[in-house]
Design a protein around this nucleic acid. Structure first.
Lengths: 223, 223
DNA sequence: GTCTATACGGAGATAGAC
DNA sequence: GTCTATCTCCGTATAGAC
């Protein structure tokens, strides 16, 4: 309703009048947020533009002006949130090649990944994307590309370097990374993929992860 | 349209007139088949009872007489096909505990599982169930229960026996089975979960599976 | 048990004022 | 750029004849 332009003030009580570009981008963001909530809760088909309208406080016509169609809105919203999600995993990658205690470093890395990837909102996003793959194959490609660039790629580089230094015996670093992920994060992830609402048990997670890392190192560690 | 009652004959050319119960159950089956096809192609919400009507050759009212609502139809169809799918995996389980060459037996077992679970129609079913978990949590429970009873359960028993005989060093058979599945079937399954239409490469699959079994045995085999 | 015809609501999308 | 009001169609579900 434009209420923000009258109510919003800065720290000195001076009203902040957004310039047109900012006003538009605020609406833009409100639409994106509302749409993501609705799509996560209802799935693509059952989500209604009506509900997104109510949630966002923006009129339906405005949404269509900004995004053109329900399909384009869906792709823009989900395609926009995916990289942000995986960007949070990137920082954890750098220390593997330089770690003095490789086992501890791998446990730390995979635990950090698991903590994020098992978050209920991210599990929901994952289910949403998987369920709509047939209708939006682009999202499947994007998910794969993002997770590869942010996670697997850097870890493959680290493994390759560790192999060159004689610390790891990995004939195929790419496959080894897939196996490490599968045997650590993958185990609880599979469980939580099919059961909604159940919290992740911390002790259970630690047990799975450290057992998985031990399994991994039993084969690939240069003793 | 009842054409079957006039055209169907037995091996001697004698017309077969279905009694009412058979006629009803034929319709029932036609509805189930058509519904499964439609749900797999469109997802739950986008699937239309209209389309299921056309595909099945049965009127819409009949479908509602048989199943009551779209939700009940969905649950009946998907809940019915899940056990059939996993029943095909059961025969492969029995030979593990008695195998002379454990590695070969595990490769064989997980390869058989993978060949079935990676089939495009079963991957689609899996995506459908995952995408609808929030609205149909029963299906998630069912999937988990079925896959546990048909696969993990028997394999856990086999591992427990192999441990008792000193052939395997598995402190936690349940976790070990999860890890074996994750590191063999799970690896290609993850890839195919996010990409539709791509065929499974046989050589690639063999490579992943045997590498996964080697990884598993490097830790758990009693040398 | 099965069909045809229809009720009734809500979906996505847009026209036109401001 | 944004809103209100509306168009059009298709969805699920059912009434009533046979």
């Amino acid at each position: 309703m434009g209420a923000e332009t009258q109510d919003t003030v800065d720290q000195y009580g001076i009203p902040i009048i957004p310039d047109p570009a900012d006003a538009a981008s605020r609406k833009h963001q409100a639409i994106v947020d509302a749409a993501l909530t609705e799509f996560l809760a209802e799935g693509y088909s059952a989500a209604s533009m009506e509900a997104i309208t109510s949630r966002s406080g923006v009129s339906k016509a405005t949404i269509y002006k900004h995004f053109g169609s329900k399909e384009r809105l869906f792709l823009a919203v989900v395609g926009g949130v995916l990289p942000k999600t995986y960007a949070g995993l990137k920082p954890f990658n750098s220390t593997i090649a330089e770690a003095t205690d490789l086992r501890a470093a791998l446990v730390q890395l995979t635990t950090d990944w698991a903590r994020i990837l098992l978050r209920p909102d991210i599990m929901s996003l994952r289910r949403l994307v998987i369920g709509e793959i047939d209708r939006f194959p682009q999202l499947g490609q994007l998910w794969y590309r993002v997770s590869y660039e942010m996670n697997n790629g850097p870890l493959i580089d680290a493994f390759t370097e560790l192999r060159a230094r004689g610390a790891l015996d990995v004939p195929d670093p790419g496959l080894a990374v897939q196996q490490l992920v599968a045997v650590t994060v993958g185990v609880p992830q599979l469980v939580h993929t099919f059961s909604t609402g159940t919290e992740v048990d911390g002790a259970e997670l630690d047990r799975m992860i450290s057992s998985g890392v031990d399994l991994f190192l039993a084969r690939y560690a240069r003793s």
